[in-house]
């Protein structure tokens, strides 16, 4: 078991007048894949967005350590540079900005913050081609404006492509499997598996145990009403599917 890459301690966060996360504890070591499951509205996306630094949410208690560093001190773009990537549940359209422009800007912005030289256009193209190959993505998407007019599935696949291009240390995938047909699901899973490395970790948010047949998690967490009520190995996902959240929650309470 490697060093904890991500350590969430007693995290309380929410919007004015409402606490959404109510004491989340989670430890994710490098090299592992953790699945995060939970009913609609339980706070999964909120957790993902808080990790990424969305300003809409305020942390009222607890802290998040990323590679030993308190994330509270970092702005969203600095978190990205530190190696945190979020595949959005609802990827955003950037009209008129091609995938190429977007990723070129992103990759170089990250490199610059790390004090690395920017990639020249040739090196960049090479890197993006490799990334596309790794996740079996059509490099032609690079020519299209980011997410503009993409189908739901295309958007999700594009997130995984960006993930491959940015090669982060921690990837949070927020329902990247939702809306994918069975073939696309396998492609995405294959991509994620190809990106697994001893120094990289994944937090995979999903509603479906089906995905976990392809991306086999080390640990499954169940989030209910802003708290992780149960953690276990991958059989927990099977239990959830069979018995539903209520039953699992009840058992956990005993």
């Amino acid at each position: 078991m490697g060093e904890p890459l991500l350590q969430i301690e007693d995290l309380h966060a929410g919007i004015p007048g409402r606490e959404i996360l109510r004491g989340v504890n989670l430890t994710l070591p490098a090299g592992q894949v953790h699945a995060l499951m939970g009913p609609n509205g339980s706070g999964k996306s909120t957790l993902a967005q808080v990790l990424a630094g969305r300003e809409d949410y305020t942390i009222t208690q607890g802290r998040i350590l990323f590679a030993g560093q308190d994330l509270a001190a970092l702005k969203p773009h600095e978190r990205a540079a530190a190696g945190l990537f979020l595949a959005f549940q609802y990827p955003v359209e950037i009209p008129g900005v091609t995938g190429m422009q977007f990723l070129r800007a992103a990759v170089n912005a990250v490199r610059k913050q790390r004090g690395e030289p920017e990639l020249d256009p040739v090196a960049m193209l090479k890197r993006l081609r490799e990334a596309a190959k790794l996740v079996d993505c059509n490099p032609d998407t690079l020519k299209r404006p980011v997410n503009e007019g993409f189908s739901g599935g295309e958007k999700k696949r594009n997130e995984v492509f960006q993930l491959a291009a940015l090669a982060p240390r921690l990837a949070v995938l927020d329902e990247t499997d939702s809306g994918l047909d069975i073939d696309a699901l396998q492609v995405v899973a294959k991509g994620v598996n190809a990106l697994r490395r001893p120094d990289r970790a994944f937090l995979v948010i999903t509603h479906y145990q089906r995905l976990l047949n392809y991306i086999v998690p080390d640990v499954v967490h169940v989030l209910v009403e802003g708290r992780i009520v149960k953690s276990g190995d991958r059989t927990l996902a099977l239990d959830l599917e069979r018995e539903g959240y209520a039953a699992v929650e009840e058992k956990a309470a005993v």
């Binding site: 990424a52 630094g53 969305r54 300003e55 702005k75 969203p76 773009h77 978190r79 990205a80 540079a81 990537f85 979020l86 959005f88 990827p91 955003v92 950037i94 977007f102 990723l103 800007a105 992103a106 990759v107 912005a109 990250v110 913050q113 960006q162 940015l166």
Partner: peptide, 9 residues
């Protein structure tokens, strides 16, 4: 936010 998440200030 989407751009920030990808590293852009």
């Amino acid at each position: 936010f989407y751009c920030h998440q990808r590293g852009l200030d």
